[in-house]
Amino acid sequence: MEKLINDFSFGLFFWQVILFIVLLLLLRKYAWNPILDAINEREEGIKNALDEADNARQEMAELKSSNEKILKEARAEREVMLKEARSMKDTMITEAKDEAKSQADKIIVQAKAAIETEKQAAITDLKNQVAELSVEIAEKVIKDELSNKNAQIKLIDKMLDDATLN
C-alpha cells in the first residue's frame, strides 16, 4: 500500500483526467454521437424496410386469396348455371313428353269416339238396310207365301215366336 502511494504520480493523474475529459468531449461531438445516430438511423431503416416488405407480402397474399375467391365464385356460378340448364332441359323434355302423350291420348280418344260414332252410324245404316232388305224379302216371301193359306199361318206363328223371343 505504501508503495502504491509512493508510486502515485500527481502529474500523471492530472494529465490523465484533463486529457481523458478532452478526449471524451471531442469524441462525443465528432465520433460517438454521429456514429450512434447513423447506426440508429440505419436500424430504423432496416426495420422500416422489413415492415414494408412484410406489408407487401401480406397484400400480395390478400390479393391472391381474393383472386382465388373470385375464381371459385365464378366456377360455382358456372356450375349452378349448368345445373339449371340441365334441369331445364329435363323439365322441357318431360313436359314435351307429357304434352305429346296427352295429345296422343286425346287423339286416340277422339279417334275412338269417331270410330264409335262411325260404327253406330254403320250399324244404324246396316240395320236400316237389313230392315229394308227384310221388308223387301218379306214382301217377296209374303207375296209367295200369301198364296198358300197354311203357309201364311205357319209364318205368322213363326214370326210370333221370334217376336216373343225378342
Binding site: 502504491l4 508510486d7 502515485f8 504520480s9 500527481f10 500523471l12 493523474f13 490523465q16 483526467v17 481523458f20
Partner: peptide, 10 residues
C-alpha cells in the same frame, strides 16, 4: 499505473 486507473475510477 495507479495514477491512471485512479483517474479513470474517479
Amino acid at each position: 499505473n495507479i495514477a491512471v486507473t485512479f483517474a479513470l475510477a474517479l
